[in-house]
């Protein structure tokens, strides 16, 4: 007989808690497993967000509504957003390669992870719990108030130290990402002067879709003679090869849509 089935009634979940746990728990685990299986980092970040929100629900179920809210605000709102910002900075399209560079690393890692799972699961399985006291008395119906009272009395010094830590972390981030400027800053006046000197296009470049049959950003503009101006499409779209050619557009058009005297130039 497993110690899990001990007789204490406080060790049995209420029905509502069971529903919460068995609904949110699998979602949390499945979303977290994207860390292992998703190829693209953005997919991973989004599913980790799902995990964080699910954990916030569980925190509320564990009589910690304050921490549930903090979880959503800090983890989902700040930390994961920071991750997504950095992903945008280093390129959203980066995907992890699954090619092994150290021989046998994958199997060894899996073995270690399974070993850790066995140790943790075994410890939890073997432990016997006397009963759940519940937080009704400690919180007194006002969990944020009770947490605040403890935070600003017993833990006041710890709070101040963590405040220092946050300041140091902010300064550290600024120092780490600071770049010393090696060349003079190029101002708008410099750019204008260079354009005149080098005989480049003096006016602002045409926006995509100008005089074309379509004003979407991925359709290049046309010049006076109906020729395509490739530079009018944003460079990102050109690099990704997502430019919508006029030729392709002409094939997409419904035949009756085009008046016969207006031929679409490929």
């Amino acid at each position: 007989m497993s110690p899990l089935a001990a007789g204490d009634p406080s060790l049995v979940m209420s029905v509502s808690e069971q529903v919460l746990f068995w609904t949110v728990g699998p979602i949390v685990v499945i979303a977290a497993s994207a860390l292992l299986f998703a190829k693209r980092a953005v997919v991973t970040a989004c599913s980790v967000m799902v995990t964080m929100v699910g954990l916030a629900f569980l925190y509320v179920g564990l009589e910690a509504p304050f921490l549930g809210v903090v979880q959503v605000v800090v983890y989902t709102g700040a930390i994961m957003m920071l991750f997504v910002f950095v992903l945008m900075l280093v390129g959203v399209d980066i995907s992890d390669s699954f090619i092994e560079t150290i021989r046998g690393q994958r199997w060894l890692s899996l073995l270690l992870a399974l070993g850790l799972a066995a140790v943790l699961g075994g410890a939890v399985w073997r432990a016997s719990f006397s009963g759940v006291a519940g937080l009704a008395q400690a919180s007194g119906g006002n969990n944020p108030g009770a947490v605040a009272e403890l935070l600003f009395s017993d833990y006041a010094f710890t709070l101040e130290v963590t405040g220092c830590l946050l300041v140091i972390a902010a300064i550290g981030a600024v120092v780490l990402t600071h770049r010393v400027r090696l060349t003079a800053k190029v101002t708008q006046a410099d750019r204008a002067r260079r354009r005149v000197r080098d005989g480049l296009h003096l006016t602002p470049p045409p926006a995509p879709g100008n005089y074309a049959r379509h004003n979407a950003a991925d359709v290049p503009a046309l010049d006076a003679s109906g020729q395509v101006i490739e530079d009018s499409v944003p460079e990102v779209l050109r690099m990704r090869g997502q430019v919508h050619s006029l030729h392709g557009l002409a094939q997409d058009l419904v035949p009756g849509d085009v008046p016969p005297d207006e031929e679409v130039k490929p």
Partner: peptide
Amino acid sequence: MTVSAYLLLASVLFVIGTAT
């Protein structure tokens, strides 16, 4: 099984994190 269920979930998440 109130406590053990949450602890098992925490263990599963911890192992997923370690494996990652």
